[in-house]
Structure formats: structure tokens, C-alpha cells
Amino acid sequence: MMLLQMFFWLFITLLLYVVFRRLYQLLPYPFMIPVLTCTVVLVVVLTSFDVSYDTYFSGGQWIDALLGPAIVALAFPLYKQRKLLNKFKVEIFATVVTASLLGILSGYWLAVVSGYNEMIVSTIISKNVTTPVAMEVASMTGGQPAFAVIFVMIAGIGGAVTGPWLFQLLGISNFLGIGMAFGGASHAIGTAKALEYGEREAAISSIGLSLCALCVSLLGPLLLKWIS
């Protein structure tokens, strides 16, 4: 029974992905990205049939296990675009620091102004980086790792969905701008979106996501101590 459930949810996830990926190709609106559509459908199905997340994850974990190697695989576009990265190393450094600082400070400021407590403030500053780092920063600074996961998801999916509109609005069409905006603001989910734009955007986005993770994990706790 357990085994059957496992295979069932694994199969359903794969099936939904295949269907929604095809649908996204037919209707390429930003809000149709498969991460969002698949997640929404699965959450609705699971909650309406009263299936627990643990039951779902017994099947989902087989897909989740590939996420780590996939992040490792980002070395591939990075290596292929090494000349580009080398050429723009100063620009990359400047934008990484900007993205990390703005992510921390704007999150901090908006949460403080809205009257949220210290726990929320400490958690929100790391929302622009990849989940394990955000959770780590949250627990280091007295935040709540479970909330960190939610913030990271909103920043990731929200950024991947609204990014294309924002770029149009601000007239951003350059690969360095687009790549770093996705990697710096929406981490790995943004990088998955940047892959749609091209290999140069993806390479910049991957380097952005890794360097911002490093930068925020070092700067986040420090800045929080200074400004509060």
C-alpha cells in the first residue's frame, strides 16, 4: 500500500509536469510556469482529498533527490560561459553585492515599517537566497526556518512570474541585467526561468545565485546586528 502510494504520487507529479510543460509551450504566459501550475494543482488535490504532505513526499522525494545534483550541474553552463564570466567579473561582483544588500535592507525596512516582530524581520532578510541558506541564516539570527521556506518560495515564484513584466517596464533587455536580477532576487527558481532566455543569462543567474547565497549568509547576520 505504502509502495503503491509512493509510485502513485511520483507518477502524478511527473504526469502533471509533462502536461503543464506542454501547456506552457502553448500558452507561454509568465504565470503559466510549470513550478507554479503543478504546485497549485497538487496542493488543491492533496488538501481536498485529505492527503498529508508526508504521504505525498514519499513519492516526491525521488524527484527532490535530483535537486542537489541539478544545482551541481549548473557548473556546466558556468564552465561553457567562462570567458563571459571572466570578462564581466567586476560587473558581476558589483551587482551581487547590490542584490544582497538591497534584499536584506529592503526586507528589513519593509517588515519593520509594517510593525512585524523581530522573528519575522530576522527571517525575511534572507528570502532572496536559496532555501538551505535562508533557513540557516534564519536560525542563526533568531528567525523561523519554516517561515524562511515560505518567503523563499514567494520570492522565487513571484520573481520568476513577474520578472518578464518588470523587465519590460524598466526596459531591461541585457543578459547581465536579466541574469543577475533572476539569480539575485529569485535564486534557483529564477535561474530555471533564466534558462528560458538563453545560456548567457543562465550562467550569470547561476553565478548570481551562488555568490548571493555566500554574500547574504555572511552579510545578513552582520547587518542585522548593526542596524537593530
Binding site: G107, S114, G163
Partner: peptide
């Protein structure tokens, strides 16, 4: 907190995108 996270994300995206484009 949802709009707060979104606004902060847009600030990061917009500023980083514009700066990256300008520098490149």
C-alpha cells in the same frame, strides 16, 4: 508579508537588472 516579500523582490530585481544592464 506576501506583498512585502514581493515588493522587496521587485526592488532587488529592478535595481540589480538596471545596474547590470548599465555596467554591461
Amino acid at each position: 508579508l506576501v506583498p512585502i516579500v514581493l515588493v522587496s523582490t521587485w526592488i532587488v530585481m529592478g535595481a540589480t537588472g538596471l545596474l547590470g544592464q548599465f555596467l554591461a
